[in-house]
Simulated scan of single mutants.
Amino acid sequence: MSVIRPMVGRDTADFWAGVQAHELRVPQCNACGTRRFPPGPACRSCEALDQGHVVASGRGTVFSYVVHRHPPVPGKELPIVIALVDLEEGVRMVGEVVDVADDEIAIGMPLRVDFRDVDDELTLPVWRKDESR
């Protein structure tokens, strides 16, 4: 069974290229320095179109989460833990938390990004409990 592949477009191509290289890229405005996620065509603060990125540390904490129990998702085993992660870089990102039981996940839990190479063309970011903090 195959996994659902993300839609890659003009605004998200740099993010997904980073993931393929095992980097977590956070979009940053080259004009005013505002960071944001998800990627978009223009800065929400100053409306500049000159967008770059910073490579994130890959560390964050659980801001909120859900446990997906139904319906089935192609390529995934249920339950799936999905968290809204507060990154050290000041943005929030949604992602799958792996190797954490659905009754163990908690708001404030420290996480670190990891990268799952699905095949030669697809790498996905996943989050794991950060035991070092």
Rank of each mutant, 00 (worst) to 15 (best):
M1T: 14
S2Q: 13
V3F: 09
I4R: 13
R10F: 11
R10G: 04
R10M: 08
R10W: 01
R10H: 05
R10A: 13
D11I: 06
T12C: 10
T12E: 04
F15K: 05
F15C: 12
W16A: 11
W16K: 07
A17L: 12
A17Y: 01
G18F: 06
G18A: 13
G18C: 12
Q20Y: 07
E23T: 09
L24E: 03
L24A: 07
V26C: 11
V26D: 05
P27F: 10
P27R: 01
Q28G: 10
C29T: 02
C29F: 08
N30S: 14
N30H: 02
A31Y: 00
C32A: 07
G33Y: 08
R35K: 14
R36V: 02
P38E: 06
P39V: 04
P41Y: 00
C43R: 02
R44T: 14
C46L: 04
E47H: 06
A48S: 15
A48W: 00
Q51C: 11
H53P: 08
V54W: 01
V55E: 10
G58M: 05
R59P: 05
G60T: 05
T61N: 06
T61V: 13
S64R: 04
V66Y: 00
V67R: 03
V67I: 11
H68M: 05
R69Y: 06
R69G: 10
P71G: 10
P72D: 15
V73I: 15
V73Q: 06
G75Q: 06
K76C: 11
K76L: 14
E77A: 12
E77H: 01
L78E: 07
I82E: 02
D86H: 02
E88I: 05
V91T: 12
R92D: 09
R92T: 09
M93I: 15
G95K: 00
V97S: 04
D99I: 01
V100E: 03
V100K: 07
V100A: 02
A101S: 14
A101L: 12
D103M: 10
E104M: 11
E104W: 03
I105M: 07
A106D: 12
I107D: 04
G108E: 11
M109F: 03
L111Q: 03
L111E: 04
D114C: 13
D114K: 12
F115V: 15
F115D: 12
R116T: 12
D120Q: 12
D120C: 10
D120T: 12
E121G: 09
E121R: 03
L122Y: 02
T123H: 00
T123C: 09
L124E: 02
P125M: 13
P125G: 09
P125Y: 12
K129D: 09
K129A: 15
K129L: 14
S132F: 10
S132N: 07
